[in-house]
Design a protein around this nucleic acid. Structure first.
Lengths: 157, 157
DNA sequence: GAAGATTGAGTGGTCAATCTTC
DNA sequence: GAAGATTGACCACTCAATCTTC
């Protein structure tokens, strides 16, 4: 094997490890969320809304937080609105904007899902590492996240 | 805030950190790969083929390695075949199976992409962590990956 | 009957274009 | 003119059904 064999470069395998770990976890979460009639992106939106003041966020901010396009968010909110887990609300100060607001039914659904979901995270991710190991992983991930997603806090208060 | 506020549970935020870091990296890689007319999943398939003996893998093994369905793999290989980066080859010992084989053009495309791609991984991920930090992250990810993707080695020799 | 690959139908996202409001 | 949201057209995936071969 020659020296320029980038195909087996350790940086490629590092990224592969990240992708496989994340993909494997996602698949399991996805299967569980489906039991509660939630797609992963819908669950993410509900979580972000529930964590926000008044349980609401602008469509644009949801888009930049989740990393999907504004048109994608429009359709996700369409579905959640149809299922009454979220509703739309006009912005009083800027008539171009609209808010997505989590409903009581949306919070109820989250309350149903969250215990089992957290259990699953623990079973396959956080619970498999020692406290020191987990902290080290999170410290590293935080550095990467902050670099790569500078806008991840859009709409935060 | 009450004690059972799972919405801000540290395990949720741990998973969020993993998702945001991976998602942010993926978006940047995706943009770069697009300059070489490759979708991320196509790049992944080319990499996996190039790393395999004879540059080939069964459709089924590609599916379990990548985590997408066999019908999804059929369509990915359709596209790569159309672009002459991969070709299909019948299995001599089992006429149900078929192999995807990377072509010379496929290897050329990889050679074009890989240097810049590795550079990007280094810029946004591996190069931002000290050697100790990176090793700690990879050790943790490996534990999770091995747990969550027991079949990830399907088709390996 | 089960495994491997493919196909048709359906779904959830993107991109480009549009409409309204700033 | 730019920002925010939506829509239509398109694309890549999944699921269920099918066909062939073991």
């Amino acid at each position: 094997v020659s020296g320029d064999d980038l195909i087996r470069d350790e940086r490629i395998t590092a990224m592969g490890l990240l992708a496989e770990a994340f993909g494997g976890l996602s698949a399991r979460f996805s299967a569980q969320l489906a039991e509660y009639d939630l797609a992963p992106v819908e669950f993410e939106v509900l979580i972000r809304l529930a964590r926000s003041p008044q349980g609401q966020l602008r469509m644009t901010d949801l888009a930049s937080q989740t990393g999907i396009t504004t048109s994608g968010i429009t359709r996700v909110i369409d579905r959640l609105d149809r299922d009454r887990l979220v509703c739309r609300s006009a912005c009083p100060t800027d008539r171009r904007s609209s808010y997505a607001v989590i409903t009581a039914a949306g919070r109820d659904r989250l309350d149903q899902v969250l215990p089992k979901h957290v259990e699953l995270i623990d079973e396959w991710f956080t619970g498999r590492l020692s406290k020191e190991q987990l902290d080290a992983v999170l410290d590293g991930l935080r550095i990467v996240r902050d670099a790569v997603r500078p806008d991840a806090a859009a709409g935060a208060s």
